[in-house]
């Protein structure tokens, strides 16, 4: 990842935050859910979500379910 890739990424993130805080009213038709009042909710959601999935999959379920490829017998 070159430096300008990171720059672009963070710029997008920044723009989204700006739009969120200045241009979005947090109590319209779509803001009627409990999470619409949490700032930067979707960033937190994405972070928590991906970590949860990764931990659940690779660290919890993986050791239980993984089997060596050639061990399948039917």
């Amino acid at each position: 990842m070159k430096r300008w890739h990171w720059a672009l990424l963070l710029l997008l993130l920044f723009i989204s935050l700006v739009v969120e805080f200045f241009f979005l009213s947090h109590s319209q038709e779509e803001g009627s859910h409990w999470w619409s009042s949490i700032p930067a909710f979707w960033i937190l959601f994405g972070a928590a979500g991906s970590m949860t999935l990764i931990i659940l999959a690779k660290l919890i379920l993986g050791p239980v379910l993984y089997q060596r490829e050639d061990d399948r017998n039917d």
Partner: peptide, 13 residues
Amino acid sequence: VEAVQMLTITFII
């Protein structure tokens, strides 16, 4: 906003 936020943070992680 929803899409951009979710996707960018997922990429970073």
